[in-house]
Lab assay of single mutants.
Amino acid sequence: EVTIKANLIFANGSTQTAEFKGTFEKATSEAYAYADTLKKDNGEYTVDVADKGYTLNIKFAG
């Protein structure tokens, strides 16, 4: 089991951190699915992958 950390960075400057656990593939998939649910209210997003994929910096356009 691994932990994927998602740093969520919103257009208004606020930030939030979420963690997803499971296999690497499952946790990564859940992180992207979570970002997709936030897209409606926060706009499109870009992802900067860090720490060999264990950290995702997800920035929303607003």
Results as ranks from 00 to 15, higher is better:
Asp48Ile: 14
Thr3Tyr: 09
Phe20Asp: 00
Ala50Ser: 13
Glu30Leu: 11
Ala6Trp: 02
Asp51Trp: 03
Asn12Thr: 10
Gly22Val: 01
Ala61Tyr: 14
Tyr45Lys: 01
Ala50Trp: 10
Asp51His: 07
Lys21Phe: 15
Gly43Ile: 02
Gly13Asn: 10
Ala27Asp: 00
Gly13Val: 05
Asn12Trp: 07
Tyr32Ser: 03
Asp48Pro: 01
Ile4Lys: 00
Glu44Lys: 08
Thr28Leu: 15
Asn7Glu: 06
Lys39Leu: 06
Val2Leu: 07
Thr17Val: 14
Asp51Arg: 04
Ser29Gln: 14
Lys39Ala: 08
Ala27Ile: 03
Asp48Trp: 12
Ala61Ser: 11
Ala31Asp: 00
Lys39Asp: 02
Thr3Glu: 06
Ile58Val: 09
Ala11Asn: 10
Asn42Phe: 15
Glu1Lys: 04
Gln16Leu: 12
Asn42Lys: 10
Leu8His: 02
Thr17Ala: 11
Ala50Phe: 09
Asn7Lys: 12
Gly22Pro: 01
Thr37Arg: 12
Leu56Lys: 01
Asn42His: 15
Lys52Glu: 13
Ala50Glu: 13
Thr23Val: 15
Leu8Phe: 15
Ala50Tyr: 14
Asp36His: 07
Glu1Pro: 06
Lys39Glu: 06
Phe24Val: 10
Phe24Asp: 02
Tyr54Asp: 03
Ala61Cys: 05
Ser14Ile: 13
Lys40Thr: 12
Thr23Arg: 04
Lys39Arg: 12
Phe60Pro: 00
Tyr32Glu: 03
Gly62Trp: 10
Thr28Val: 10
Phe20Trp: 07
Gly43Trp: 03
Glu25Ser: 08
Val2Ala: 08
Gln16Met: 15
Glu1Val: 07
Lys52Asn: 13
Asn57Arg: 07
Glu30His: 11
Thr37Glu: 08
Thr15Arg: 11
Gly22Trp: 02
Asp51Ile: 02
Ile9Cys: 05
Glu1Cys: 05
Thr37Asp: 08
Ser14Glu: 07
Thr17Leu: 12
Ile4Ala: 01
Gly13His: 11
Thr55Phe: 06
Ala31Gln: 01
Ile58Pro: 00
Tyr54Ala: 06
Ala50Asp: 09
Asn57Asp: 06
Thr46Gly: 05
Thr23Ile: 10
Glu25His: 06
Gly62Tyr: 11
Gly22Ala: 07
Ile4Gln: 00
Ala50Gln: 14
Ala18Asn: 14
Thr3His: 08
Phe24Asn: 03
